[in-house]
Amino acid sequence: MGLAYACFIAVAETDQTLADQCFFALCSDVICEFPLRDMLKFHQSQKAEGTILVTKVDDPSKYGVVVTDETGQVERFVEKPKTFVGDKINAGIYVLEPCVLDRIELRPTSIEKETFPLIVRDKRLFAFTLPGYWMDVGQPKDYLFGLGLHLSSMRQHNPSELAEGSSFVGNNIVHPTAQIGKDCRIGPNVSIGIECVIGDGVRISNCVLLHRVKVRNFARMADSIIGWGSSIGRWARIENKSVIGEDVHVREEIFMNGTIVLPHKEIKDSQHDPGTIIM
């Protein structure tokens, strides 16, 4: 998992100054149910310097395992263990006290490999086990799989937020500003963003359409991601983990098979070979 932190969020609800408050650090390439309040409560109850969100996996030999005692105190980290030492891995969300920053030198640093072992040595690093789903969504295929997990969670916890109607199959989310044409079949596992316009007779499954995408009549999209402000022509087919960048315009009757398209392109020819990159 990468260390591209999305944000630092102050969370303490006291009269302390901002510099005295603990904060969350979140990796930008994970999705889960984000039990931040429960995690914070656990962190404070343990008087921890740092708390790692961990998730259980079926095959821990593929990951770095976080080994804890019965209280959740982290004892060690084991990278891709060949024998079973535990089934909990780092889920990429942390609660940290400000003093953690004092442990980080002014140079490129891995908090997991360099900083956390120092906190473990002082017995002040704890792990909080995530209830519910988790997914690293840093790759397109994982992003789409994570979408399905998220929508399933919404069905369980917030079903009223999912799209309903004769055009929809399974779990889908559609922004209120989006327009859906006649005789469409959308789903399962589709996300349609702000101000998207979907024509008549369109078929979409297991896809993400980001903001302001326009899809002309009778186009079909499956297992793909369509970028901001792009357009898909009539009778076009986009499938097999294609990723269409921002402001890309696909002409009528074009077939895109597992194609990656960089932003600001016009696609005039079909692409039959999976893995083709249009630059």
Score class of each variant (00 low, 15 high):
R107A: 13
G146E: 03
H249E: 04
G92E: 09
Q156A: 10
G72K: 01
R103W: 10
D269Q: 14
A91C: 11
E164A: 14
G72C: 01
G187T: 08
T14Y: 00
I192K: 05
T51W: 00
E164C: 12
G86E: 10
R124E: 14
E75T: 01
M256K: 01
R212H: 05
Q156S: 11
Q44F: 07
I225C: 00
A236I: 08
M39C: 06
A10C: 10
S166R: 12
P81N: 10
R251S: 09
Q46C: 13
K265C: 09
A219F: 13
D29C: 07
Y143N: 06
L18W: 07
S45F: 07
F126P: 05
F218E: 14
T17P: 01
F218N: 15
Q156K: 11
E161N: 08
G2K: 09
E246T: 05
R251N: 11
W228C: 01
V190I: 11
T55A: 15
K265W: 01
V65D: 15
G170T: 07
N171R: 14
V169G: 01
A48G: 11
I194F: 12
S231V: 02
S191V: 06
N217M: 11
T83L: 15
F168T: 10
F77I: 03
R203I: 14
Q139V: 07
R251E: 09
G64S: 13
G275K: 04
V261W: 02
V66M: 00
M135V: 11
V174G: 12
E70V: 00
I111A: 06
K141S: 06
V120P: 08
V11Q: 07
W235N: 15
D102I: 01
W228T: 02
L101H: 03
I267Q: 11
G132Y: 02
G146A: 04
V57H: 15
F128P: 01
L96A: 11
C7E: 13
Q179Y: 04
S61N: 10
Y94M: 13
H264F: 07
A4I: 09
G233K: 04
R234F: 13
K123C: 05
I254M: 07
F218W: 10
V248P: 00
I192P: 07
K123R: 15
C7A: 12
L18V: 15
I232G: 05
Y143E: 08
Q21N: 12
L106Q: 14
M1R: 03
M221F: 04
K113V: 00
D69F: 01
Q179N: 13
C7F: 12
D102A: 02
N257E: 09
G86L: 11
Q46H: 08
A236S: 15
G193M: 09
A222Y: 13
P159G: 08
K241P: 00
A19E: 15
C207L: 08
K80M: 12
E252W: 06
D69C: 05
L118Y: 02
F116D: 02
R203A: 11
I31F: 01
N158G: 03
R76V: 02
H249C: 01
D20N: 15
F255K: 03
K88E: 14
I204Y: 04
V197G: 08
W235C: 08
